[in-house]
Design a protein around this nucleic acid. Structure first.
Lengths: 147, 147
DNA sequence: CGGGATCCGAGACGATACTG
DNA sequence: CAGTATCGTCTCGGATCCCG
């Protein structure tokens, strides 16, 4: 049932048929994220998800090998990194360059499309980081308002 | 243990103390998303998460009431929308305007900070939507390469 | 209408062990 | 080194019922 191997939990349950696109009121795009049955929603989740965003961000600075990537994205497990990379590769955002040497050496780098996505993502990430003090103050206000 | 009521699963487990920020090699920001123990990672997840991104996107067009929002964000349950809105409100991205009428009327709108975040998010969302055909082709290539 | 409380299953996630 | 396989945990998230 799953697209590939087993345990690729991320891409499971995203196989919904096209079909009722409701009205698609806003733009005339073929794919509207606001609609449930839309492949772009899945891709967006891969890119913005917990590990996807950080992985793309890390690769923006340059190509990295698996374990270097793992060290850069603090806290990610081997399993999740592998899964994330598979999903991003499948969506054409990341390119995997394997050399059949021994020991094996595999480099991951962004595709041109991936670079554009990562750039926009980093724009967001850096903005949020720069405004974290505002966020922290908002949280304190919110929490203290509820005793 | 949880910050407020119960069942606010989203904001749970994000209470990690500052501390070991590793090297923070890239920039001199106080908060570095790549570090595990960083509040900005949590905020980013609220904003880019499955429902957070769509909610911010929907509110970018203007203030909306709860059920209108629910209809716009196709597929979200009451519970998840409520949860998402709480998290975004707590982070200072969304403002909640409640009128004590009967029946109750509650409007949600973006704060100035939320508008900036949503703008950058929409930039990303629209870009991905516009390139979905590339993504779909990449997927086919990837899938067929694995038989 | 705008939610909260509760139950519960699916699957996301991490730890460990193993392979080429 | 670069992963896969397996297993157990934990939480996300939907369904349902309820209330002001």
């Amino acid at each position: 049932m799953r697209a590939y191997s087993e345990g690729m939990d991320i891409t499971a349950s995203e196989e919904r048929r096209q079909g009722d696109l409701s009205e698609s009121s806003a733009e005339n795009l073929a794919y509207d994220v606001f609609s449930r049955a839309c492949p772009s929603r899945a891709t967006l989740e891969h890119a913005t998800g917990r590990w996807g965003a950080l992985t793309l961000g890390a690769l923006y600075e340059g190509s990295l090998r698996f374990n270097a990537l793992r060290r850069r994205v603090d806290g990610v497990s081997e399993k999740m990194l592998s899964q994330t990379l598979h999903a991003l590769e499948r969506d054409g955002l990341v390119h995997r360059e394997a050399q059949p040497t021994n020991p094996p050496r595999v480099d991951y780098e962004l595709t041109p499309l991936g670079r554009e996505v990562a750039g926009r993502l980093l724009n967001l990430i850096e903005f949020v980081e720069g405004r974290m003090d505002d966020v922290m103050r908002a949280r304190e206000r919110y929490d203290s308002a509820r005793e």
